[in-house]
Amino acid sequence: MGKIFKERTSIDEALRLFLERISTTKKTEEISLETCTDRVLAEAVISERNVPHYRRAAMDGYAVRASDTMGASPTNPVMLQLSDQVEEGSLTWVHTGTAVPEGADAVVMVEDTIAAGNLVEVRAQVYPNRNVGQIGEDIKEKDVVFEEGHLLRPCDAAVLASLGLDRVKVFKKPVVAVIPTGDELVSRKKGMAVPPPGMVLETNGLMSALYVKKWGGIPRYLDIVPDNPDRLKMAIEANMDADMILLSGGTSVGIRDHGPEVVSALGELLVHGIGVSPGKPAALGVINNVPIVCLPGYPVAGLVALNFFVRPGIRKLAAIPEIPETILKRRLAAKVSSKIGYVSFIRVVFEGDKVRPLTGAGAGALSSVAKADGYLLVPENIEGYDEGEEVDVFLIE
């Protein structure tokens, strides 16, 4: 007698059960600023200097004593002497970013002057500190520049460099072991010839590994494991040093599907059977505090499970802050049907200011994802959307 799903868990409940068993890794490393983009700070950054550390000109022009420009205007210019130092009645040329000389407390923009030999006609009045960047105006010594947990961007690297830093402490990326399973799989390493009927090239593991890398983890892409519970157990136990383990395939209820049973035997099976279509056979578990995700073998179902569980799991492991997804409002160019009790993952393409669902896009048609511009999620309590209805569209990438 075949196995059956004992129950179906909602996506939200499954994700809650999964994430509450994941602890953020606290391993850290120091890396160069050149490689720090998209890494998460493991400690606060406190400035040890002022930025700028000198008074600097904010404009090209002339450094002056503001009091010498009193009343200056195009119709009532003030004549000042060009000099190497600023004293009463004199001024000095400065470029943007250069130090403002002693004696000067303002900069007159070059647009408001006319030079004639060693004399400069000032045609605008300036006030003290006008067009002058003050010491510490950008960052003051002992300022908290970034808090622990900050996700670093290229502009942040430039700020850190301005503080005189060349390295920064970040959380290590979590290692995610990707284990493809299935007697029907053929390794791409053995050549790209068309496999015999009933056999397929292993591609889900490749997809999973690349998404792990994209989302901030380090993939450990392993060789294919056959549909044998003992071999699968050995593969899992050999990778318990990883921060997360993904089993690709073998998650349903057929006689060759051993993933959930092995996870249950080695640790705790949290969920098997999730209210999402495609993706129902996905399973989630924990073995010795290592989170385990059993991804369905159908490519799109596997991709759905990757998005809903692996991505947030990696974010929690790596302490990556949540970034709001881009959601577009679009009207449907055709009706969308859905099954009550399941959140439906519907791939769509843009047609002008509308979106059209892809037809013939089953769970095994991975090319439908490559063809899609985005997807929409139909809630489990409705049967779909009518043509013309406005929906939320998430971008595929």
Rank of each mutant, 00 (worst) to 15 (best):
P296V: 01
P229E: 10
M240N: 03
K142V: 15
D143T: 07
A370E: 11
T203L: 13
V107W: 08
Y298V: 14
E147G: 12
V159R: 08
K190Q: 12
G149H: 09
E111D: 14
P278F: 06
A115Q: 15
K280I: 12
G388A: 00
I4T: 13
L17H: 07
I314T: 02
A209M: 01
G384I: 03
G217W: 00
S47N: 03
V45M: 02
A157N: 08
V51Y: 02
A106E: 05
V170Y: 03
V369I: 11
L152S: 09
L152Q: 11
T326V: 13
D257C: 01
L152M: 15
V175N: 12
V262N: 00
E137G: 10
V253P: 00
K371A: 13
P226R: 06
D241R: 03
R315T: 02
L33K: 04
A14K: 08
R123E: 07
V271Q: 03
I224R: 05
D38T: 10
I323P: 15
G364W: 08
T203H: 12
V393L: 04
L232S: 00
V122H: 03
D156W: 05
G2A: 13
D105L: 07
E389K: 05
T251E: 00
V355N: 02
H95S: 11
E88H: 15
P174T: 05
L160H: 02
Y385I: 07
A14W: 02
G275T: 11
R331L: 06
A363F: 01
V194H: 11
L210V: 09
I346V: 14
S90I: 03
M199S: 15
L284C: 02
P101A: 07
L270V: 00
K214M: 10
E322R: 11
Y385E: 04
M79C: 12
T98C: 09
A370Y: 13
T9V: 11
L19V: 05
V186C: 09
V100H: 04
G61C: 06
V64D: 01
K3C: 07
G374P: 08
L247T: 04
Y127F: 09
M207G: 02
R330S: 06
K189Q: 13
A318W: 03
V122K: 04
L201F: 15
T96G: 12
A42K: 03
R39H: 12
E322A: 15
L270W: 01
P154G: 14
A44L: 10
P321D: 07
E387R: 12
I396P: 02
K27M: 15
A58D: 11
G182F: 06
G254P: 06
G133M: 13
E7N: 14
E397N: 11
G117C: 08
D373A: 11
E261Q: 10
C294H: 01
G97W: 08
E102N: 09
E322L: 14
R330Q: 05
V276F: 08
C36Q: 15
D60Q: 09
I340L: 13
P226K: 07
N50T: 03
V304L: 06
P357R: 07
A124G: 15
E351P: 04
A235T: 00
G360C: 05
V194G: 11
K142M: 12
T25I: 13
D166Y: 09
L17K: 08
L358D: 01
T92K: 15
A193H: 11
V51S: 03
V253F: 00
R16A: 10
W93D: 09
